[in-house]
């Protein structure tokens, strides 16, 4: 009896905590490193300081500056290296894309193409109820932690009808994290094969997309989109960049895939 009273008292004290997003815009601290913005017109002739500073070769000149979000770790090196302030981080958390090449940002002011919704048939299958199976294949656990965080009361993934499930047999798709270690290749393939068709593949984080900091290590197969010739690449339906992506970046990507976000970010039921 006393305990029941304590439960109620603590419940009242803890309050309601679920974020007002997507009805309201999210707030991030000043230093938050969301989607980068590049202004190629500021690049001095012949300067490649940012390219040299990048630990994962996410930046290249061809001939204008290009930044690959699939490789970007969202560290501060390029911003600090640039003498002209041509690269800066915005507070925009939205950056998931359907195509690998959409992750490459240009310095010519072109808007990034955010993830488009699934086609009508897939949307009618998964739009209101999506069950996903996560597979960590060499992730440091950073991405997995942010996926777990989606289950807490702040982000509350369940309110959108999306759920992480224990068995691939119950899943509509796979959430892949990590650069796919050689030691996880077989288990990943078996898990994927166990998911009934049609199925989705969602690559979460720089490692799953491009190998991240482990790209080039002989122990890994370099992410979902670029395995060596011997491995069958998984057909990726959604790329969610970050190291790790903020929970709202992941949620934004999932809801866009399901066609449940207007382009501005408002929630459409």
């Amino acid at each position: 009896m006393i305990n029941a009273w304590n439960v109620l008292k603590t419940r009242l004290r803890q309050g309601h905590r679920t974020t007002a997003w997507p009805e309201e815009a999210p707030t991030f601290p000043d230093r938050f490193r969301g989607r980068p913005a590049i202004d190629g017109t500021k690049c001095p002739e012949g300067c490649d300081d940012c390219e040299k500073s990048c630990p994962t070769q996410a930046i290249r000149f061809d001939p204008g500056i290009r930044l690959d979000l699939g490789r970007c770790l969202f560290c501060a090196e390029c911003v600090n290296a640039c003498p002209e302030g041509a690269i800066r981080y915005t507070a925009d958390h939205r950056m998931a894309a359907r195509n690998r090449e959409d992750l490459v940002l240009a310095g010519n002011g072109a808007e990034m193409r955010l993830a488009a919704a699934l086609d009508a048939k897939m949307k009618s299958l998964f739009g209101r109820s999506l069950k996903l199976r996560q597979v960590a294949a060499g992730d440091c656990s950073g991405c997995a932690l942010e996926l777990q965080a989606l289950n807490n009361v702040v982000f509350d993934l369940g309110r959108f009808g999306i759920q992480f499930v224990a068995s691939p047999r119950h899943a509509d798709g796979i959430l892949l994290t990590g650069p796919v270690t050689k030691n996880m290749k077989l288990a990943l393939q078996k898990t994927y094969d166990a998911i009934p068709q049609p199925r989705l593949v969602i690559a979460v984080g720089a490692c799953a997309i491009s190998g991240g900091p482990f790209r080039g290590s002989p122990a890994v197969l370099v992410g979902a989109d670029n395995p060596p010739a011997a491995a069958d690449p998984l057909p990726v339906d959604l790329y969610i960049p970050g190291c790790p992506p903020h929970p709202l970046t992941i949620l934004d990507g999932l809801l866009r895939l399901l066609g449940r976000l207007e382009s501005g970010g408002g929630h459409k039921l």
């Binding site: 060499g138 270690t181 900091p213």
Partner: peptide, 16 residues
């Protein structure tokens, strides 16, 4: 299963 070769990378990769 999570072996990514971190020690080797720390021995061979550039500082950044």
């Amino acid at each position: 299963y999570q072996h990514r070769g971190a020690e080797t990378l720390l021995e061979t990769a550039p500082a950044h």
